[in-house]
């Protein structure tokens, strides 16, 4: 019986990563301790991770473990924030810094229920100009500023 879900799944995470690392490391050169290949050190780490994961998962099933349920996942803010950052990456080179920043700020504002459209829009325009001044004018960052017309 799993008593401590949080720790159990943490253990599973370690086991999964550890397994992946061990498999990948075996594909690299292992070598001998005196002439170590690129797989030697990662292999050791992978094995350590497997042990840690197994111990953690085992511990969470023992009688002494404190009962704890996994926290609920509210995926909306996560997906909106990471999505808007991805959007920035997609837009930056073709549409330039100004458009990418405005789009990112507007998209990310869906994650919060506060703030009117005017505030959001004003923030996005202000940030776009601010970033332009600091990064492009000030720090001379090489980045397209406006959409390239082609």
């Amino acid at each position: 019986m799993i008593k401590d879900q949080t720790n159990f799944f943490s253990g599973v995470l370690f086991l999964a990563v550890g397994l992946g690392v061990v498999v990948a490391s075996l594909g690299y050169q292992i070598g001998t301790p005196a002439r170590m290949g690129s797989g030697f050190f990662p292999l050791c780490l992978g094995i350590i991770l497997l042990f840690l994961g197994a111990a953690l998962a085992f511990q969470s099933c023992t009688a002494g473990a404190i009962r704890e349920r996994l926290e609920t996942w509210e995926l909306k803010p996560l997906l909106i924030i990471l999505g808007s950052v991805t959007l920035f990456g997609v837009l930056l080179l073709d549409f330039g810094l100004i458009v990418a920043t405005i789009a990112m700020v507007v998209a990310s504002s869906f994650a919060s229920r506060e703030g009117s459209w005017t505030t959001i829009f004003a923030t996005s325009v202000f940030l776009a100009l601010f970033c332009y001044l600091i990064f492009v004018v000030g720090l001379e960052l090489q980045v397209p500023v406006l959409p390239s017309l082609s």
């Binding site: 990456g89 920043t101 990112m104 923030t123 776009a128 720090l139 960052l141």
Partner: peptide, 29 residues
């Protein structure tokens, strides 16, 4: 709701500027 978009904007440009690489933005995601 004003603060976090600002942090995001600085993060995005900052990450890009490290190597001039969009890939880094996706690594951050």
């Amino acid at each position: 709701h004003v603060l976090y978009p600002s942090i995001l904007a600085f993060s995005c440009i900052g990450i890009y500027s490290v190597n001039y690489s969009i890939f880094e933005v996706y690594v951050t995601v």
